Simulated scan of single mutants.
Amino acid sequence: MIKQALIGEFMHEAENTRKLLSMITDSALEYRPQPHLWSVGQLASHIAEVYNWYGPTFAQDEFDMGSYIYDKGDISKAANILEKFEENVANAKTVIENSDESQYMNTWTMSAGGNPIMPPMPKIQVIRGFLYNHLYHHRGELIAHLRATGNKVPSLYGPNYEESQRS
């Protein structure tokens, strides 16, 4: 039953993420609001990459970020990022569908080279916080970046500002 709820939210939010990533223009990829922040391309690539974390998070009780190989792919074109997203989201959906609900309450930890990064917690809490909410957070950042470049952004949870101003 929990798995069906996770899949439902996953599918709904993957579509929202797809709508957002589809609105990125190549001309916006290098924009960053401040020098220390990720560019639009880096942020969008990170969003696409988080879907790669579903496999190790669901299948293992420890995720070692120290040995994880981040694969941002070619972020020189928005279409490349969207393609990476599509590949990763399909794999993540399969991971959820094949997951074992009896493992959802297992204690899960994240480390880097044996050093804890996050406190141990039930895997279901990690799935909701580290995977799902993490993506929503970065989508919000990406929306702010895109708005600052003058690009349009999609409505995700009802009309966006532009749509609400139409008479």
Rank of each mutant, 00 (worst) to 15 (best):
I81N: 12
L82M: 07
L82T: 05
E83K: 12
K84I: 10
E87Q: 15
E87F: 13
V89C: 06
A90V: 15
N91S: 09
N91G: 09
K93F: 03
V95M: 00
V95Y: 05
I96D: 02
E97S: 12
E97F: 04
E97N: 12
D100Y: 01
D100L: 02
E101A: 07
Y104L: 04
M105P: 01
T107Y: 03
T109E: 09
M110C: 14
A112Q: 09
G114W: 02
N115Y: 14
N115H: 15
P116G: 10
P116F: 05
P116T: 13
I117G: 01
M118N: 12
M121V: 00
P122V: 02
P122N: 11
K123H: 04
I124G: 00
I124P: 02
V126T: 12
I127L: 11
I127W: 01
R128T: 06
F130Y: 00
L131N: 06
Y132L: 12
N133L: 13
N133P: 12
H134C: 11
L135F: 05
Y136G: 00
H137L: 08
H138N: 11
R139S: 08
L142V: 15
I143K: 06
I143G: 04
A144I: 15
A144N: 12
H145C: 05
H145N: 11
A148L: 11
A148P: 08
T149W: 14
G150L: 09
P154D: 14
S155H: 11
N160R: 00
